[in-house]
Design a protein around this nucleic acid. Structure first.
Lengths: 177, 177
DNA sequence: CGCTTGATGTATCTCCGTGATATATTGCCG
DNA sequence: CGGCAATATATCACGGAGATACATCAAGCG
């Protein structure tokens, strides 16, 4: 009964103190989303499966006016999470990059079209770099407040990563004529 | 009736002279796979849909002993492909990186564990860089033989991309103690 | 040569995930 | 305090990933 990577996202978010599907999704959307996205359609059914497996414990929660279900990690869930964190299995890596895909098929097109494509790619990554930088102050505050907390390291990697692509695009734009 | 990105992969591969689902998948697996993977479970049904839409024309092909179906682009398929290649819609981008995910949740872990994680990530990307470099001679030969052909530009981006991550990991390993 | 075995080629099937949507509750503004 | 936007919770329809099935071909072996 292998767990999916997204299952571990859920376990991890529970450890970080989130307790409902909604809260998990909200945090994912401003953090892991950039290197591991997750949708409601995964999170809710997966919380159910994890409960059946005994990795999380859920109970109906009436503390708010809304009907909802709150979860927490079980001992076994904690253990499963730690095992995954320290395991040395091959790491899943996957990239979906429409811009590169278009370039791949752009041989038939004139060079100015290819330069334009590099420019469009750059624009997207500039946008993402921007977005990450806007998260940074928040993350830094959280980090100094309650210890490492929301791993800055990963955020900083993200920024360097986007910047690298932006620079590469600039070089290609210059070259492409 | 929006086409998926993978539909365009198929159209593009047909333009490059591939004609069966198997041939398309084979080329994908040594080229676009690194920034846009595709599975049989996508390719075969999608060829069917594209035929219904009139973007490809398929016929039973008895030239080999095997029962199979060959496809080619229609005029309309050519047009759809070109339109996509030059359109300025926002580009889809998505990353799935298990190593970063683990780091994100590794706050609770001792620093030497985090350094180990950066090392594991580096190992994966070194492997991928290697793999791309092994494709390069082939691609260069193809390029000089029949013009641009198999876009070198994209391959070279891939190598630089992997190298960037490898270098970044090295820096983090050094820092992590 | 006939047989076995593994590689290649072609395709489908099951189950999971994505993105959209449904529905309920709360907060806010006049 | 009525109406509407924002928030919160969840499900559904459809497409896609990975595994598997099945057929053909090639290669070695007695």
């Amino acid at each position: 009964m292998e767990l999916s990577r997204t299952s571990y996202v859920i376990l991890g978010m529970l450890r970080l103190g989130r307790s409902t599907g909604y809260e998990i999704k909200s945090l994912v959307d401003v953090s892991t989303r950039f290197f591991w996205a997750a949708s409601y359609g995964q999170i809710y059914p997966e919380l159910g499966r994890l409960e059946e497996l005994g990795l999380v414990r859920g109970k109906p929660d009436e503390s708010s006016g809304r009907r909802r279900r709150s979860y927490e990690l079980t001992e076994e869930g904690e253990r499963a999470l730690d095992e995954w964190l320290t395991s040395t299995e091959a790491l899943h890596f996957e990239l979906r990059h429409e811009g590169l895909l278009k370039l791949f098929f752009s041989d038939s097109l004139p060079p100015e079209e290819r330069a334009a494509q590099w420019r469009r790619i750059r624009a997207e990554h500039e946008r993402m770099a921007e977005q990450l930088r806007s998260i940074a102050p928040n993350a830094r505050a959280a980090a100094s407040e309650r210890g490492p907390g929301m791993p800055l390291e990963v955020l900083e990697f993200g920024i360097a990563y986007q910047d690298f692509i932006v620079d590469y695009c600039k070089r290609m734009e210059a070259e492409e004529d």
